[in-house]
């Protein structure tokens, strides 16, 4: 279906978790593919690949992005944070602690996306209502927990 072969590879530079990565890749590859396959950052999960489950959520300049619907080439020069980069100086992020201690993790497949989504949200709105928390994570599907303990874990970090 495609026309003549065109130059589709590029050297791209990504700033992921504070580290610069430079590599040659094809421009049609998504950030999710590059993170998982080229950088070995498999904490970012592929649940639907079509932007409807939230498992591939990463932070770009602090905002939640679905990496399955983001071209890797499109986020050069931006600060990308994945679940692997959330801990600071070896100290887990409070959300990670809360998820562990409150039992908000079962199979763990939605967890990285869920935690990053919650982080983006709390950074913006540190004092949300329960309803606002639910709305914030409503694009992150979880089949194990019924969301109960996830919402509890997030709310445990609010200032109310």
């Amino acid at each position: 279906m495609r026309g003549k072969e065109v130059v589709v590879k590029r050297i791209i530079t990504l700033n992921v978790n504070g580290e610069e990565f430079e590599f040659l890749t094809e421009v049609h590859r998504t950030l999710l593919e590059v993170l998982r396959e080229d950088l070995g950052l498999t904490g970012t999960k592929r649940g639907c690949d079509l932007g409807t489950c939230g498992a591939c959520t990463v932070l770009i300049e602090g905002k939640p992005y679905l990496s399955c619907l983001t071209l890797a080439a499109d986020v050069q020069g931006k600060k990308i944070v994945t679940i692997e980069g959330l801990a600071q100086d070896g100290e887990p992020h409070p959300l990670q602690k809360a998820f562990v201690q409150k039992g908000a993790i079962q199979c763990g497949f939605c967890t990285p996306g869920m935690i990053l989504m919650a982080k983006a949200f709390l950074d913006e709105n540190p004092n949300p209502s329960e309803e606002e928390v639910k709305q914030a994570i409503s694009g992150n599907i979880c089949r194990c927990t019924g969301y109960t303990k996830i919402v509890e874990a997030i709310l445990s970090l609010t200032h109310k």
Binding site: L41, T42, G43, T44, K45, T82, I83, E84, L86, A87, P92, Q96, F99, V100, Q101, G103, I105, Q106, C107, G108, F109, T111, P112, I115
Partner: peptide, 15 residues
């Protein structure tokens, strides 16, 4: 907490 909850919370759990 689940024994592997930390792995899962930090992205180190391998599926």
């Amino acid at each position: 907490p689940m024994l592997d909850a930390w792995e899962k919370a930090t992205g180190r759990a391998r599926f």
